[in-house]
């Protein structure tokens, strides 16, 4: 992800000079992570929210100052604001999305851990993330999916970098536990005791 930051920075700079093709390049580089992050927050409405966010990004691109990594953070901030607006409008708690329905279809309950690792789909991954507390889920999404560094993620979330680092660490640890436990439940209780 960070490897694209140089390319992204160039594209953003050219887009700020009016290059449409460069803007499209920037879009393609940023949109996957942004969309993943928005899916984690607003679920199925992520596409709409991302579309709103991109309107604002296109409008305010002239104001932006920074490099490729900065552009990721800036766009994530805009997307987050749009997502929170969206949630406020809907009066829906962020966790109460359609994602939670997918919990029933987690791979671990009926397949091996191995398959859980290999066949983790977008929905399943988001369902796992949706089981985290909100701050951990957002930190993990920003760090892992959007590809921000710690300080940038902290700026997006309006928190201290240390808090975001802790939340990311705990979130990833919890996700690993979830993956592991979901994977071994099929083997019966003796695997949980780890005494074999």
């Amino acid at each position: 992800m960070q490897a694209y930051d140089g390319e992204l920075g160039v594209a953003v700079a050219r887009a700020q000079d009016g290059d449409e093709a460069a803007f499209a390049v920037a879009y393609r580089l940023v949109q996957p992570g942004l969309l993943g992050y928005l899916r984690g927050i607003v679920g199925d409405d992520a596409e709409d929210v991302a579309s709103d966010a991109w309107l604002e990004i296109a409008r305010d691109l002239g104001r932006f100052k920074g490099d490729g990594a900065g552009f990721r953070g800036w766009t994530a901030t805009i997307a987050r604001h749009r997502a929170l607006d969206h949630l406020r409008r809907q009066k829906v708690r962020p966790r109460a999305t359609a994602l939670e329905n997918d919990l029933l279809e987690l791979p671990g309950t009926h397949s091996t851990h191995d398959q859980a690792l290999e066949t983790l789909s977008t929905e399943q991954a988001l369902a796992l993330i949706a089981r985290l507390p909100r701050d951990q889920a957002e930190a993990v999404l920003l760090r892992v999916v959007v590809g921000l560094d710690g300080p940038a993620a902290a700026r997006v979330l309006g928190k201290r970098p240390g808090a975001v680092r802790t939340a990311t660490h705990r979130g990833l640890k919890r996700l690993a536990q979830l993956l592991r436990t979901e994977g071994v439940t099929d083997d019966g209780p003796q695997t949980l005791g780890e005494s074999r």
Binding site: P32, R143, V145
Partner: peptide, 13 residues
Amino acid sequence: VDALLAAAVRGRP
């Protein structure tokens, strides 16, 4: 875990 999540959650461009 993070690589797995990134691969799963990030959409395809």
